[in-house]
Design a binder for these strands. Sequence first.
DNA 1: GCGACAG
DNA 2: ATCTTGTCGC
Length: 230
Amino acid sequence: MKQSTEHGWNIPPSAAVEIQRRLAGRLSSRPPFDALTDVKSVAGCDVSFRPGRVAAAVVVMSFPDLRVEREMRRETSDRDLFPYIPSLFAFREGPLLSELLRSLEPSPEVVIFDGQGIAHPRRLGLAAHLGMLFDCPAIGCAKSRLFGRYRSPGKRKGARAPLWDKEGEEIGVVLRTRTGVKPVFVSPGHRMDSATAAEIVLRCCRKFRLPEPLRAAHALCSGDKKKDAG
DNA sequence: GCGACAG
DNA sequence: ATCTTGTCGC
């Protein structure tokens, strides 16, 4: 049985676009928490590819201390995997991540995805799409830009610049998570706003450019055999 | 028609 | 994303 078909992910690109248009209208930009004071844990999600195989991982960390609380990993064949098409990214990485997220209890307080939130042509990047499906606060943290215009942020850690759409609406933040390194593109997914998303991502960054939950998820699904070290 | 284009 | 070690630069 093809799980991707059962879950409605394996569909023609034209149908995928229609789904995005339909779901985008139901997004919420209001975090369920006042600020960051209520957030006790943050989950990171990532997917990696190997010849013939695909693996996804979800790592839940306490917040703001960032201690690993839970790790989940799932690997399958890449048969019937949706092709990589910019703007339809969720249909490629979403299926496997959904399998992990649906079995994660209790539901995570906040989830950070390796991709865009609403900084997308139809306002439905991976983080917005999965956040919507699980009705969970979600943040998109991408390593490069897909959509939107911006002015380069300051060079120091914490510096940020708004990411705007063609109508001048803010759809995210270009955030410098480490002095002197290329900034990341943070955008709210579901039940989230840009300011809160940027704060959470920044507080999840220690010694590296990417937030720890994402680094941990990446290491887990890609099979990095490393150990801890302050 | 010509670029742009998350991972 | 992935194929891959050392190496150039701050």
